[in-house]
Design a protein around this nucleic acid. Structure first.
Lengths: 345, 345
DNA sequence: CTGAAAGCGCTTACAG
DNA sequence: CTGAAAGCGCTTACAG
């Protein structure tokens, strides 16, 4: 370790100014003449000086880091979405000069977990947090918000609007409407749905959107064709198993709460000798990375997580910096992507 | 914001002790009688007190955070490996009470990038760093090490052994030996290879391992059958295109530098009407998440990134805490996973 | 066992 | 425009 870390005092001495002035040039105060600034900057660069962050923070600066909390009960590893989210958040934060402290939460109800998440905020390790994967009501998040910390949450709404809570969602209503309009246009009237996790806002809004859209087209929502699911492949598979074992006629088209569910559903259909889209049409939601390569290529509702996270990150940082008290709610559009999994009838 | 953050001084006052004592119980000093400790702890809990981290750090404690630097020139998003690595590092660090500051490096040669990475270390935002995706020689990393920072690096060696550098690798030599022994056992003697990125240590060691293993079996390494690649799917595809367009007979088996390359290679082979393993055997390396589901299921050399990162993280933290001066080099075993992409001839 | 005091390395009113 | 000084909230020798 060749570096005993030069500190601002020495920079000041060498540049022939006071620590105050060194601090002023570092913090870009306007009242420092160019000449002085240049002189000090030269010394700073020559000595490769960087202010110690903890000293800056203790003296009143921000950490410039935001905590990213990925709520993932199961194995995160398999989900390549998480990865994209992370990259998106990191790079956007970075553009604002912010850093990301990445965390995984396995269980939001776990005592130790709750304590350690709160600790991160209370210790002032971070200036704010972003939660991904939250259920509709997460006491942990509510507590944090009540404490006044700024938090961004994907997939929640402003039930009790608070200015330090920023929510981000997709317009699932519109997405479902598009999906349905497309199917109806193809001649479908017998349409089923495999739901997502109803503990998540998007699970609910997608189903609500489905019902509304069906109503719009004067189509009945047949209870036998409303299958439970949880956003995972397996639940799509199971839903089809269920559907095929009840004495009912089959829908001609199925809307899945997301593409993973659609994959599972198609797998189950194939196993029962039903071809997609020849025998039954399937439409997904989210536009998963693999949907394009899937056989058949999956028709779906595209959603731009990247862009959403970008907005959320930016807004969280803005809230931290500006402390504005307006209520922030981000809603992103989604759009139909037609591929090969639906057929005209 | 209902919380003006209670500080240690008030805790002390309320508990009827000095700040010194409060600090002692927080830091678990042994010379505090149980009675005093309990009394103080009660107040700490009652008031939900957490020491401000920047103050602790400024007073000499560690940040307890390590920087994770993912070097990813292209789009990270598609690679589900990154995700696994991240989770593995976060959870292991967490077990040691450490946090992960996650960073993406697009270009290790970029001036601004270099500066900002160095800044993170110099500012003392982190106690150490872990680099994933590094080339054999990364001046940035060398500088950091020269400065005395503790750095863990995947896929590099201890060329100039330094105690604050910790490297982690797989035993590619052994892996290649296993792959080759298997192919030879199946009767293959005409064996080709598609290399990985030769700027990466693993690219080199895999090829070296291949050559050594061929030599061991008295098999000639035919130059026409040594194809360049870069660890990505596309390069495997391109390699096969090249191979099929040169006037040479074909090998009966091909070893790919990793599974992505193998996927690309198999895709190209199929397009040329060659079936795997019927017409040509292909073996991969790394055991990608998708290899199991691939058609044909890919025979490969399994490698446990998770476990490697766990060791690396643990060792980096140990080095930070203990400051030991021994040279650390982690080498992980790999093992053959037989599936359906190789055939006996 | 425990308190008073110094110190960690900055920033920012304050005064000039 | 600029410096001296106070203060940020802790920890840890030091002394008793």
């Amino acid at each position: 370790m060749k570096n005993p870390k030069i500190k601002s005092e020495e920079i000041a001495r060498i540049a022939g100014v006071s620590r105050s002035t060194v601090s002023r040039v570092i913090n870009n105060y306007s009242n420092v003449p160019a000449e002085t600034r240049d002189k000090v900057m030269k010394v700073i660069q020559d000595y490769n000086y960087f202010p110690v962050m903890s000293a800056q923070v203790l003296a009143g600066k921000r950490m410039r880091t935001i905590g990213l909390f990925l709520i993932e009960p199961g194995n995160v590893s398999s989900d390549s979405l998480t990865n994209m989210l992370l990259v998106s958040v990191i790079e956007n934060a970075s553009e604002h000069g912010y850093y990301i402290l990445a965390n995984i939460i396995r269980d939001t109800k776990n005592k130790d977990t709750i304590r350690s998440v709160k600790e991160i905020f209370m210790q002032k390790r971070i200036d704010g947090g972003i939660f991904i994967g939250a259920a509709i009501n997460e006491p942990l998040i509510e507590e944090l918000i009540a404490e006044g910390f700024v938090v961004g949450v994907v997939d929640q709404n402003q039930e009790y609007p608070q200015s330090n809570r920023i929510v981000a969602n997709f317009n699932n209503d519109s997405g479902m409407k598009q999906a349905l309009a497309y199917l109806v246009d193809l001649g479908h009237t017998k349409i089923g749905v495999i739901n997502g996790d109803m503990n998540r806002l998007s699970g609910q809004t997608k189903y609500e959107g489905f019902k509304k859209a069906m109503h719009l087209h004067n189509l009945p929502v047949k209870p036998d064709w409303v299958l439970p699911g949880d956003f995972h492949d397996r639940s799509g598979y199971d839903a089809i198993q269920t559907l095929l074992h009840i004495p009912t006629d089959l829908p001609t088209a199925i809307i899945a709460a997301n593409d993973s569910v659609a994959f599972g559903a198609i797998r189950a259909l194939k196993e029962h000798g039903l071809q997609v889209p020849e025998d039954i049409s399937v439409i997904g939601f989210d536009d998963h990375v693999l949907s394009d390569m899937h056989h058949p290529a999956l028709t779906t509702i595209r959603v731009d997580f990247n862009d959403m996270l970008k907005h959320l990150t930016t807004d969280v940082i803005a809230k931290i910096e500006l402390g504005t008290t307006n209520i922030k709610e981000i809603t992103m559009d989604c759009s139909l992507v037609v591929r090969d999994s639906c057929k005209r009838i």
